[in-house]
Design a binder for these strands. Structure first.
Lengths: 159, 159
DNA sequence: TATCAGTGTGCATATTTATGCAGCCAATGT
DNA sequence: ACATTGGCTGCATAAATATGCACACTGATA
């Protein structure tokens, strides 16, 4: 085996047909097929091929070709206007209820979750309403304070 | 941050929202969010979540949630537990809040409703959060017990 | 021919990730 | 109460993977 491109093709075939979980293992298979390289070169080959280790159902990781791997959608960056559409917030027991302009509940809910406020377990959003679940040991006042701190632009809309 | 399941939920969120390419980097982000663990624990967490490093178009590798990989989706129903994607459950007053891997809230919510647990009136699900409304006369402890009974595989994720 | 640029490689080592082991803690059984 | 079990963790270190550097080879160019 002399050329790199031939070796790359061979690697592709091996990864498709066998359960390879380390470069050393791949190295052995290649050696047994008359192809002699070092682990360092293999590492570079795999990067060229965009090979990656995929999790299996039983908790292992095996090398896999990335042809089908889609780009992960990055979340839209938060802007200073992430509270656009916020209308009001009112406390009720261990819940805070936020009303928004219709269709704005989801993005606002996401923005709130992203802040990881200590007083909030999580939020859940419909179309124009968000439920904010307050963590045990905190009060609506705590939540109001946290909101005023993280989102000062809506501090005056909290009851 | 005290419980492992909560940390797992936080990790999924970080991996979705940021470009993480090493456990050390993830470690720093967690630390900045008041969550202190070692790299060793992180390695175990990532294996539990079946996180893997996905190749990007520009030749880098970033951590990614394996449940977002589409080729695995068609098989989920037949070969996975209905509690796949369940991350954590925390009580708050007459509610229990379940955090899931994104997009898993709806099916898990359905599975819970289907059990007709005596301690639960109903559930409502967003994208990665489920609210469980506890029936009058029951407590969060009752709900936790019911969950442990009906879904023993997630008993250890209940706070 | 001489020189240069680019590619490919091994070696040694750095970086990154995984794990054996022991200890802690909470839950459970006797 | 005491012992036991199992989950979770950190520490130290092993295992796995990536890379800086030097060198060899090729093809293009003056």
């Amino acid at each position: 085996m002399e050329s790199r491109s031939q070796r790359l093709a061979l690697i592709t075939k091996i990864i498709q047909n066998e359960e390879v979980d380390s470069q050393d293992k791949l190295l052995q298979i290649l050696n047994s097929k008359n192809c002699s390289v070092t682990q360092a070169t293999l590492s570079r080959d795999l990067k060229l091929l965009k090979v990656f280790k995929r999790p299996t159902r039983d908790g292992r990781y095996l090398y896999s070709l990335s042809n089908a791997a889609p780009e992960q959608k990055p979340n839209i960056a938060k802007s200073s206007s992430s509270m656009d559409g916020f209308l009001s917030m009112e406390m009720s027991g261990n819940l805070a209820v936020i009303k928004t302009v219709p269709a704005f509940a989801q993005p606002i809910s996401q923005a709130i979750d992203d802040m990881d406020m200590p007083s909030i377990i999580s939020t859940i959003a419909g179309n124009d309403t968000i439920l904010v679940v307050i963590r045990n040991g905190f009060t609506g006042t705590n939540v109001a304070q946290d909101f005023a701190h993280y989102f000062p632009e809506i501090a005056n809309k909290i009851k």
